[in-house]
Amino acid sequence: MSTVRRSLTSVGYAAGLPVLLVLAWALATRGTANLYYPAPSRVLDAFVSTWLAPATLTRDVLPSLGRFGIGVLLAITIGVVAGTAIGATPWLRALLEPMLEFFRAIPPVVLVPVLMLLLGIDDTMRLAVIVSGSVWPVLLNTIEGVRGTDPVLTDTSRSYRVRGALAYRYVVLPAASPQIMAGVRLCLSIGLILMVISEMFAASAGLGYQIVYFQRQYMIPEMWAGILLLGLIGVAVAAVFQLVERRVLHWYHGSREVARA
């Protein structure tokens, strides 16, 4: 019984603040007819009628999520593959690191017009925007993680002639995985932001496009509902990430717990 109570308690904690905020919002908007501050019930209606409508889902929401998914998967793959190569090769690292810092410092948003010119206005451009902004934390963290591998562990692997693909799979990647996962976490949140931004320019569909469209049409509850949807997507992505992270890094959390005890 106590586990049930405990999980109820944790749900209560997680839901408590959102419930309070919605209540406060409902109280504040009670009786006003202000266009810009719709009551939560109006936003909820708009949420169900516009965003959960099959047409919007298939035309705007799912394609956006698809681009987000493909974009961050590309960013993670590129970041990890390039990062392990750079991290394990001192001369390559010395050559590339200043340039990587330069590119990382450029806000990806300013690249959108450039990428539009270079790639045209289509999904490739939007994917390029997502990848070009979200690849950096994965790439730089992977480089750091690979470089920071314990030299005793590296010597052990060398002395037992563990190399090539086997070393990559069983030594290099896991040794860097705590850093890589920290990079992935950042990559996901940057990717989500860039998914929206990439749809705000020269688009005719997508989550970002629809939100801007509703805003310009003074369909304020619909706009707020879109922002609510973005927030919910963010929460869902974070939950999935945490699930994966727990699995991938269970050894890391376990060993740290032992070290602290």
């Binding site: 314990d150 005793v152 562990l153 010597d155 069983y170 030594v171 995985s177 050894w251 890391y252 060993s255």
Partner: peptide, 8 residues
């Protein structure tokens, strides 16, 4: 402690 692979 450093020559064993903690993830294995």
């Amino acid at each position: 402690g450093r020559s064993l692979y903690p993830w294995l």
